[in-house]
């Protein structure tokens, strides 16, 4: 090629200041001439910004399955990446939770009978279901359960924000799994769903206690208290389902907002750097 368009013509082309015919001429020349292509002007910042967007797309790891799922449900991308690291959301935990639920459902179905005793078969399920999110919270955040805890504790998100985010994710997960198992149960549907309010109340109580004690300690205490409360029904009142009666449910419903308010007021104490 012996002829090249003058530089200012290429610049005018890039700025869209050429008439259509000249535009076509310059374009057909550019298609064949590396030297003139290199002369097309550009802003350095534009090129850098454009490259950064591309680099991030081509050179990034594929998000984890949990991250992709959470994003699918509308969780912001950075929150999804954060939650995917929750130890209590690891596959082992999910399998364990599903296993417990499976056993409880199987037990209920095997012992199910017609007549007035039908509800009794649900008891193992109803007792176990609220304990699942509780166990998950014990394993969600803290020095003893999270191997990377110490590095995280020095970051701005550490403390109540990290704990509450993870607890919420664990709770949603447990409630979704348990909710999916509920229709498989025999017995009256209203009773089969009686686990939900105790689960929420116990979770809120675990968070509230965690502002004073380590989460595993709080959870262990609550699990013992819950088992005791369920056992107290038949022992003292002669009612197997006292802990799930409408009166008890009303109590749970009142406890949830009260406990959450307490957690909010004492949230600073969930921080490892807070003076106790």
């Amino acid at each position: 090629m012996t002829w090249h368009p003058p530089r200012d013509l290429v610049e005018r082309y890039a700025r869209g200041r050429l008439d259509p015919v000249l535009t076509m001429s310059v374009e057909s020349h550019l298609a064949r001439c590396p030297a003139c292509r290199a002369a097309v002007p550009y802003e350095e910042e534009w090129l850098t910004a454009s490259w950064e967007r591309i680099e991030d797309l081509v050179d990034r790891p594929r998000p984890r399955l949990a991250t992709r799922l959470l994003c699918r449900f509308g969780v912001p991308e950075h929150v999804a990446v954060f939650l995917a690291a929750t130890p209590a959301l690891a596959r082992g935990w999910l399998v364990a939770m599903a296993g417990v639920l499976g056993f409880a459902v199987a037990a209920a179905r095997l012992s199910a009978q017609d007549g007035p005793g039908a509800a009794d078969a649900l008891i193992p399920f109803l007792v176990a279901a609220p304990l699942l999110p509780l166990a998950g919270i014990a394993a969600a955040y803290g020095r003893h359960v999270d191997p990377a805890y110490e590095s995280q504790a020095a970051t701005p998100l550490a403390g109540w924000r990290a704990l509450l985010l993870r607890a919420l994710a664990v709770l949603c997960c447990a409630v979704a799994l348990t909710g999916a198992a509920t229709p498989l149960l025999p017995g009256p549907p209203g009773l089969a769903a009686a686990w939900l309010l105790p689960a929420l109340a116990l979770t809120a109580a675990a968070l509230a206690l965690s502002t004073r004690f380590a989460p595993p300690v709080s959870v262990a205490a609550l699990a013992a208290a819950w088992s005791g409360a369920v056992a107290a029904g038949p022992l003292f009142a002669g009612d197997l389902l006292l802990a799930f009666s409408p009166g008890a449910q009303a109590l749970y419903a009142l406890a949830v907002p009260a406990l959450l308010a307490l957690v909010y007021l004492r949230r600073a104490r969930l921080d490892p750097g807070e003076t106790r």
Binding site: A14, L47, W51
Partner: peptide, 8 residues
């Protein structure tokens, strides 16, 4: 390649 071709 991006540096070379993105502008044109």
């Amino acid at each position: 390649l991006h540096q070379r071709h993105a502008p044109w």
